[in-house]
Write a protein that binds this DNA or RNA. Structure first.
Lengths: 225, 225
DNA sequence: TGACAGCCTAGACCACCGGTCCATACCATC
DNA sequence: GATGGTATGGACCGGTGGTCTAGGCTGTCA
């Protein structure tokens, strides 16, 4: 966490530094990003930096948390009250579809997703930020479970990790294939993300042989922890 | 690629160095692993190291490729000739199940999976090694597609990336929860991996509302590239 | 036996890294 | 003008991956 002094800085200087830092981190990843380069670009000395932040990870965390907050604030969750099981997946699909509009011509959330994933992999210290990113999915997850549409055979933490891993993988591919984000590409990407999530989260899709009904109700699955 | 000189070294010295390197890389990850530490532990000088390898990544690649080869050589693929569509998933499940026996009390493949994943993320330079790891899945994938059991609505490269991402995510969780690998834990883990893959790869599982048949054939999905 | 050549190696050295430290500039208060 | 806390520049530290060169060792000649 940055020191209070940093929060007292003039807003312009603060967001300028965080913007430059975010750019470097997004381009290079945490390890390859050079603190010295960030400071030189921002015209800030080592001493000043460590006067505001604990260390490089602290600056990293502050930068991506700001970007994550900004991105999440633009996302809207559907109202799950009064939803029937039949309406759940279509509602999620609509909700996810809106993201394409929100993020038209902007890879913000996509890039931030990758940075958060790197943070999670790096240290438990970023758990708070990871949880922020998860909060959104967790609401969908739990609403779906109340409606009987989302599986409950493995712990939700594990489901969230899978959702996150697939999100990061798909976003990584997306950015690799589309350095310039276009509306159409983003839409098809988000559709793919949605489809993947439904596959992972749906109640017992299991192996359905063509032309047959599934044998019984949900497939039980040994819990992992 | 290591220089020919390295391959000419006595087998014992070679595998000793690679073993020490692999241990350091597995424990610390590529970035945090210290080349100096590896060399000190192996009793090899900087000069000698750079006489055999291009750089740190080259040593990394050589170490994990060896481990990957060793691990893969212990895996067996089912015979897909003469298999009917009904038999495909059970055959895969049986095949995957055998891995639990093969890797009882050994996290080898699990750890190697994570290293390969890190390599892929790091640089396209490791594409060859990544492909080696994929080759195994690719065979399953293509056999399943010939039998009509595995989806063809998105490119196979993308499917492989998803398989790989989920594999790495699940393996990461597994190692975090079970520092000591036991047979039972490994079995339930592998069952979870298998179930996840089937969810991702099966033809159009899509959203099935409870008590209804899917509307039509497979769900078409816009291709991403 | 001595000279040479090629393979191999040790480790000094380099630029750069994240991080520490302290002298000092600045500025509000007295 | 003196004082004291805030803010800052930048020298400095140990460690990093990587480079380079002097020289040891060994086999092969004359």
């Amino acid at each position: 966490m940055p020191r209070q002094r940093f929060l007292n800085m003039p807003e312009a200087a603060r967001s300028r530094l965080l913007g430059i830092a975010l750019e470097e981190f997004a381009r290079q990843g945490f390890e390859q990003a050079s603190l010295n380069r960030i400071l030189a670009a921002a015209g800030i000395s080592k001493g000043a930096c460590y006067y505001y932040f604990d260390d490089k990870e602290d600056l990293f965390a502050t930068a991506i948390e700001g970007a994550l907050d900004a991105a999440l604030s633009r996302l809207r969750l559907p109202d799950f009250e009064g939803l029937t099981p039949d309406d759940f997946w279509p509602a999620v699909e609509r909700c996810v579809g809106e993201w394409a509009e929100t993020f038209e011509s902007s890879g913000d959330l996509v890039k931030v997703t990758l940075l958060v994933d790197e943070a999670r992999r790096r240290s438990p210290r970023f758990a708070g930020i990871v949880a922020k990113g998860h909060a959104f999915w967790r609401v969908l997850l739990e609403a779906g479970q109340r409606l009987g549409c989302v599986r409950t055979d493995i712990p939700n933490d594990l489901l969230l990790r899978l959702v996150e891993a697939n999100d990061a993988a798909l976003d990584g591919i997306f950015l690799a294939v589309h350095p310039e984000v276009t509306r159409a590409a983003l839409e098809s990407h988000i559709r793919l993300v949605f489809d993947t999530f439904r596959r992972l989260l749906a109640v017992a899709p299991g192996p359905r042989r063509p032309g047959r009904r599934p044998p019984g109700g949900r497939r039980s699955h040994e819990r992992v922890r």
